[in-house]
Design a binder for these strands. Sequence first.
DNA 1: AATGAATGAGATTTCATTCAT
DNA 2: CATGAATGAAATCTCATTCAT
Lengths: 199, 199, 199, 199
Amino acid sequence: MAGGTKRLPRAVREQQMLDAAVEVFSVNGYHETSMDAIAAKAEISKPMLYLYYGSKEDLFGACLNRELGRFIEAVRADVDFTLPPRDMLRKTILTFLSYIDANRASWIVLYTQATSSQAFAHTVRDGRERIIDLVARLLSTGTRNPEPGTDFHMMAIALVGAGEAVAARVSAGDVDVDEAAELLINLFWRGLKGKPENR
Amino acid sequence: MAGGTKRLPRAVREQQMLDAAVEVFSVNGYHETSMDAIAAKAEISKPMLYLYYGSKEDLFGACLNRELGRFIEAVRADVDFTLPPRDMLRKTILTFLSYIDANRASWIVLYTQATSSQAFAHTVRDGRERIIDLVARLLSTGTRNPEPGTDFHMMAIALVGAGEAVAARVSAGDVDVDEAAELLINLFWRGLKGKPENR
Amino acid sequence: MAGGTKRLPRAVREQQMLDAAVEVFSVNGYHETSMDAIAAKAEISKPMLYLYYGSKEDLFGACLNRELGRFIEAVRADVDFTLPPRDMLRKTILTFLSYIDANRASWIVLYTQATSSQAFAHTVRDGRERIIDLVARLLSTGTRNPEPGTDFHMMAIALVGAGEAVAARVSAGDVDVDEAAELLINLFWRGLKGKPENR
Amino acid sequence: MAGGTKRLPRAVREQQMLDAAVEVFSVNGYHETSMDAIAAKAEISKPMLYLYYGSKEDLFGACLNRELGRFIEAVRADVDFTLPPRDMLRKTILTFLSYIDANRASWIVLYTQATSSQAFAHTVRDGRERIIDLVARLLSTGTRNPEPGTDFHMMAIALVGAGEAVAARVSAGDVDVDEAAELLINLFWRGLKGKPENR
DNA sequence: AATGAATGAGATTTCATTCAT
DNA sequence: CATGAATGAAATCTCATTCAT
């Protein structure tokens, strides 16, 4: 009735559906979102969702993949390996948090919601693990005078946890991006400097 | 016939039910757990669950509260405010992680699962906020030469995030408690030392 | 509203449901029968069907089993192995057709409908195969002067096919039981007498 | 793009579709076959099916009719009314079973599937009835010394049932055509000889 | 105090069928 | 002539929740 009942090429509809799905999933969570609600939001009929994505789980997976892809692309495009370490760290963290800030509804909430279903918990865990490994490698190569027994992997777990927590606040609009970035940068930078000399 | 049809005093029944509920919720998550499953695990009938707890949501809330209470009690009982700062920090973190380690199934998993339902997201957020405030106060009083604009609250967000991440690994049995504690202690301790000398 | 909303013991409800299911399945066929229709016929709610029988397929299977069991019981109870062969044959066929006649809606129609779903085709085939084997054995022991190459199994296939066809007419109320029985008896009896001498 | 988008004359398309439909229907049954599956098998689009046949039911009807027509044509073409009775019987039965054997996927299987839907039960019943009438007439004219009360119609029901049962085995590839034919011929021939001398 | 019996309401999913191009 | 795009309607199944004993 209210416009929008046109025939659209497949690729367009696909994005339209994912847009709606990401929005609704991110507001209500995986389990508390019905396919009806997504279809309504996308202004299409439910069978379309199934025709294009097969199942609710697959649809959620497609959301996850698209958002993850965009996120990675955004961060990767901005990382400049020619910068000196501290500047590179600063730039990466700023890009990371800015992306979150500019795409509040999508990424972090999906990231959070994905834990809701047993079916996706492992996807999130795997993704997080890859990031942790990356950070661990960066710490291990970047630390100038590491203590002999330093566990870079565990340090990476902690730092990534800190990053996620700050990012969650950014996505909630609770904190200022620049200030948050500054703090994370410091925390990571300290992580790069072995055991503290104190006591 | 098959055991379990005894008349038990209210308090005992309540714990029996909560034990079962915590176990099942923590394994399957909030949405993927049915009241039937809980009743079966507790070896009682479903109406009992409703009689005692009113609804699934309330039951989950009761789980959350009990586990949270136990956790807080355990940590608080062990905190010794007479110790010098670094020792107090060490003792608290060790107690915290040891509790998690000894109660893997319950707390962290419930804590994680609670995010699954809109109905509990706020409970978890509130709890976390209180911890963050506490940590922020500790930072603010413990830091010797704070930079003028230091945002202790944000630092607390990051540190608590790191703590949660490490705790999650402990609860998964992935990491050694003592090593994890050592790392967290260092990270927090560094957080206590204002802004690092740049570059 | 119209009475009948009582609490019934499990065993009673089970039969009530099966009665309704057999009736509706036999009229509409497996695929064209909805669980709603069965629930309505049984004057209970749909979840009861699932609670008691798990799935539509299982419910149909339960119908099949009950009807098959009753049928076999009825026939077996009436077979008298002390009678001379021809009398035993007569009595068995009469019992068989009388049972069909007295239980028109149930057995034959289920027997027919069961072929409708891939899931049950094999059940029916297996049942039929057992009957064919039985008849083949009877032929093989009962035939006085068998031709050397006589294929009793194939003869059994044909005779059982004839029996089914006649039974279908009985269940449709198209033919008289006694006359049908007389004819089948003759046909089977001839089957017992090796190759015809003619030509 | 992927083949099959040619413009074909109506008659060719029709056969192409029916070929596909017969194949899929006979494998999966009426209800468990989707129009999508048929369109895919025929390598055409679904609207074509509807353009040519109007509905799933009509399409199945068309399958049934084509296969029935071919079957009747094949048998009729081979019946030779100038032969003596026994030879004619032999030839007809051989033709019948050979046709089934050579067209396993099609006729008998559809014939069986047709029972699945209320919409076709009557078609099958009518077809069977015509065959039964034919056989009954043959029996009535071919029997040399009929008993006074002989019910040729019922005898025909039984014999056709036997024929169908044997044919089903032939179409399943379970039995040898010649042997099956020999047995059916004997059975029918006996049917042509009035009541057997009792005892 | 305790439970077996029962259900309202809603979720996911499928499919025959039809527009619009 | 031919089809990709789209949907109305319904089917199976689940689950939190309550009633009657």
